[in-house]
Simulated scan of single mutants.
Amino acid sequence: MQTSLKTAVTSYLQAGTLAKGTKAEYQTTLNKWQQWENGVSLEKLGREEIREFLDWVHSRAVAVDGSNPGRTANKARAHLRAIMAWAWDQDLLDSLPRFPKPMEQRDVAGRHYLTKAELNALYFATYQMKRPRGWYEPHPIGRYWRCALVLFFNYGLDTGTIWKSTLSHVPILYRQVCWDKQSPDRDIKQQSPWGWLFYKRVKTGKTFYRPMNRAVHSQVRSLLPQQVPPEDPVFLGGGSRPNARFEELCRLAGIKAKLDIESGTKQPWELKDLRKTCATYYDEHMPESSIEILGHSVGGITYRHCAYRAPLAFKAIMTMPQPSAFHSLVKGQEGQCPCCRRSFAEST
């Protein structure tokens, strides 16, 4: 039996705990779908049909003098992704179709996440970080920051989980890095070929056992000393003001300051923006996965106490598309420009 998009939207909205305004936006997208006058069922919906619908939404927004037609089309795209991901999770679909790339849009509310091009620039700018005064650690400071950027992107960690800059922070220690396939938490049945990380959130104290994907594994492995002290922190180089060093790194990478839409003033990027970046890309990659990845509180008694969300987090982390620079260590291109293979000079 074929499933119409209207039936899927109705079931999706009834199953979730979305806000009233969000439900109204989904209904608006459904109305546009019905006006499009293409009776394709959910099971037969493919990349070509989705592209045609989004092009129609964009053209319609231009025709009615829409101020930001790209954003209108991208909102419809996000709604379709969420609905089809839910239908696939409910076994209504055998597989998910490939979605066309988002259209260019004007960020009317200000952009509070870093693009992958900017993340690549930050990664390569770590080679320009100056050696701090009194630095006698086994690796240059840039290597620790490269690994930290990869972990911020993949897990959305708090700054205090990476660097201990205050007494209340609980950074990741070497004993919290497991290289076995089996998770230290025996309730998790999935196996990771790259190992696992254990850490606690600074704000809530909640514990997490997260699989390492290939990018994370290669970066953490590069920090290992010859003799691993279990109680030593993995990451160094944060100093007493990690955000000040991150602001300097953004300057080295040539990243412009973000715009505050309320005041219209420019503000420097902070490390907590990497957490927002993580949430943005996880929701684009696998809708609603950021709730579990970042450890956000969720509504609904059933969802909080009965839903077993570890498989969703595992699948999202292991399949997360990485910025190209994060794979340079895996591909044997560490320390080289990806286009001309020019070696970067790093302070030691």
Rank of each mutant, 00 (worst) to 15 (best):
Thr29Asp: 07
Asp65Cys: 12
Gly66Trp: 01
Gln2Ala: 13
Thr29Tyr: 06
Leu294His: 05
Glu118Ser: 10
Ala121Asn: 15
Tyr282Ser: 01
Leu151Cys: 10
Ser11Val: 11
Glu52Leu: 12
Trp56Cys: 04
Val57Met: 03
Cys278His: 03
Gln176Leu: 03
Trp194Leu: 06
Ile141Met: 02
Pro311Leu: 07
Gly254Ala: 06
Leu5Gln: 04
His79Val: 13
Thr7Gly: 04
Leu252Ile: 06
Leu274Gly: 01
Leu223Phe: 08
Tyr136Ala: 15
Tyr136Gln: 15
Phe246Val: 00
Trp86Ala: 13
Glu288Tyr: 09
Thr126Glu: 07
Arg241Ala: 11
Glu247Thr: 11
Glu25Asp: 11
Thr302Arg: 14
Leu249Asp: 00
Thr277Cys: 06
Glu137Val: 06
Asp94Tyr: 12
Thr22Asn: 04
Ser192Met: 05
Ala19Leu: 10
Gly16Asp: 06
Arg60Ile: 13
Asn74Leu: 06
Phe235Cys: 01
Ser240His: 13
Ala257Ser: 13
Glu118Lys: 03
Leu236Tyr: 05
Arg245Val: 01
Gly299Val: 08
Asn243Ser: 09
Val220Phe: 02
Trp56Lys: 09
Pro230Val: 05
Tyr303Thr: 01
Asn243Val: 07
Asn243Leu: 08
Asp158Thr: 10
Trp56Thr: 13
Met103Pro: 02
Lys164Gly: 02
Arg309His: 12
Ile317Asp: 01
Pro321Phe: 12
Glu292Cys: 11
Glu346Asn: 05
Cys340Trp: 12
Val9Cys: 09
Ser218Phe: 08
Gly335Ile: 10
Gly264Glu: 11
Lys44Glu: 13
Trp163Glu: 00
Asp158Lys: 04
Phe53Ile: 05
Leu30Phe: 09
Arg210Asp: 06
Leu271Ile: 03
Glu37Met: 09
Pro69Lys: 01
Leu45Met: 14
Arg106His: 15
Gly110Gln: 04
Glu247His: 10
Gln14Lys: 15
Arg81Ala: 12
Tyr174Ala: 03
Lys20Arg: 13
Val234Asp: 00
Thr22Asp: 09
Thr166Glu: 14
Val150Tyr: 00
Tyr123Trp: 12
Trp36Ala: 04
Ala73Glu: 00
Ala73Thr: 00
Thr166Asn: 11
Ala313Tyr: 01
Lys116Gly: 07
Ala313Gln: 05
Arg214Gly: 03
Leu5Cys: 05
Glu37Pro: 03
His285Thr: 05
Arg77Ser: 10
Arg210Ile: 09
Cys178Ser: 10
Pro321Trp: 13
Pro311Arg: 09
Pro100Asn: 07
Gly160Val: 02
